[in-house]
Design a protein around this nucleic acid. Sequence first.
DNA 1: GGAGCTTCAATTTTT
DNA 2: TTGAAGCTCC
Length: 758
Amino acid sequence: MDFLNELNPNQLEAATHVDGPMMVIAGAGSGKTKVLTYRIAYLMEKGVDPFNILALTFTNKAAREMKERIANVVGESEARNVTMGTFHSVFAKILRYHSDKIGYPNNFTIYDSQDSRSLLKSIIKEMGLDDKVYKPGLVHSRISSAKNNLISPQQYEANAEIVGEDRMSGKPKLFIIYKQYEARCFKAGAMDFDDLLFKTNVLLRDFPDVLNFYQHRFRYILVDEYQDTNYSQYLIVKKLAALYENICVVGDDAQSIYAFRGANIENILNFRKDYPDYKLYKLEQNYRSTKNIVDAANSIIAHNKDQIKKKVWTQNEDGNTIKVLRTLTDNEEGRVISNAIFEAKKAKGLDYKDFAILYRTNAQSRSFEEALRKLNLPYKIYGGLSFYQRKEIKDIISYYRLAANPKDEEALKRVINYPRRGIGNTSMEEVTAAANRYGVSIWEVISDFETYPVSMNTAAKKKMQAFATMITSFGIKLETTPAFDLAQEIAQSSGILKELYDDRSPEGVARYENIQELLAGIKEFTVSQEEGVLVSLSDFLIDVALLTDADNESEEDRNKVTLMTIHASKGLEFPYVYIVGLEENLFPSQMSLHSRTELEEERRLFYVALTRAETSCTLSYSMSRYKWGQATTSEPSRFIQEIDDKFLQHESPYASGPGKSLNNSGLSKRSVSSGEASSMGRTGKMTPLSTATKKTNPSSNATNAALKVGYNVQHERFGKGKVVKIEGADPDKKVTVFFPKHGQKVLLMRFAKLEILD
DNA sequence: GGAGCTTCAATTTTT
DNA sequence: TTGAAGCTCC
């Protein structure tokens, strides 16, 4: 077992623990995945049947990578028998197998968030409620958190506290929506993401023989990223492990970033209560990052109250200090960071893939994309609209879903009139109402107007029947035709392929190509499965619902600059990391400022971001940023000043001369010193007012210092005006100007592009 | 029933 | 700024 030589003593101890409960608290970059994979390999070398091992990961990607690594140690054929995947994908498959027990068809559909929201929208509309009050997104997250805490619609309704909260927030009918939603999903033979866990709990609770079977089957259980599990997941694991208690959980409380989605750090803390004789292993040596980065990260996380104390350390070299860049606008931020990447790549001979730009929200990617494109730096954006969420892909997959499960209401609504078949809203409202009246799915109505009469003109009925006939014909072929052949046939005879082919616009061509790519993907999927077995389209559907973009990485994407949200970056590492948009109300997010726990989650998120970096980390913030099309001013994130200053080096790329750096005192007062205006004043290098102010640069306002009451000024938008008043200290210095055409305005000196006319 | 126009709202993170 | 939803006109 040579592979064990690669482990340090702590890692070795953890990896060779065989029986009994164990927990590994693993600091960032401490070789957690290595321990997990080697422990699995070790178990197998010790004679444990891979069929008896269940390893649950947070993403498909993590599962796939771990599987590869295990295969490298014990060989492909052994490795493939380990059950490894995300909670959602592993239990979706188990649920399919036992679906009849809980009243679902075995071809049940998995609704993604879009489907859930669309269904909720219909329900809210049908109930005659105001969707401004009952926002589908918010309603969904409320229902989702109920499900993650295993609260059924009945329990929800009976829970005075919960119903009280809804009443207080002006949504007293929420429990009815939940009930309806549940009923509609059931009628459609559909489960949403949360159901996959909820129903697994139901299955294991109500069918002791099933529970017993899986308890024996999964004699060894490993859970990665345990800090991100929710109550529902926790209970599944607990039940499955109850017999043998060979349970191994790995996590890091400092990297818990999914509490907003129901993840429960308590699961880590409660582990010792559930398994009093558990063994605890701590991995604290970081192998990933320089000393500076590790220590800076430590200094950040120290600000959190809720944490398990540990001391992450490293033997790596000190490395460079962390650069903090201040820019004037978000576009400049994009340019400066892209330039920095360009230069570093050239100077150090690095690959594109060595760089990552991490941000809080997907919307921030824009300015970086533009700048990278201008420099011809290839990049890849993760997240955002994934391939599988694109309209044309969802459309065609809706046909596949209908072939497998025609009761799938969301798929039906999506494509019954796409391509156009003359089935409009009026007819759809008619059949939806009828379906609700008869208590069946829309499909049952349109495929059997005899049993479910609807008052509708015959033409409309005919069109619907024709659609139903087509779907039925697809369904018949489902289990007899190979996935790829049927997929192609459906693409053709549904008319989608033609529809897209006829659209010769660039977007249309791209959509057509996306469909081709999907078909190629299905082909590939068919090939990757075992030989001699017919791979049906429904097999593909099981996988596709739970796939994300990250699972779809193509070869040519390998060597590109990475752009992603910090959430998406968890578990990854890059030599050069740029964490951007470090501004109050953005990171930490505005939504998180109301409570300590939420703010601490943001801080953990920042911790995760920092610890992605191996050799170099750069932070940046901008003084103004476009938010819904409007420039807004912003101030630097509190997180910057929370880092011990000895690890930082401040820079403002646009300023010239020695006085450029943003000094610490300025920062710790949490205000931006208006850099250039004062420094220029001090050095006496004041440029002529008129030329300085004509620059497009909004705060190259060397003029500000010279501005006095009574001066005539020119404003870009308001035209000529006279200064009435000047107030406040430099960063927030305000100037009141009377404009004959627009009246009196109070302007922030930093951003008002005032030109002095006197 | 459908296309095209105007208006209006919304921006956190994702299996 | 973008996208969806509603409205008008054909």
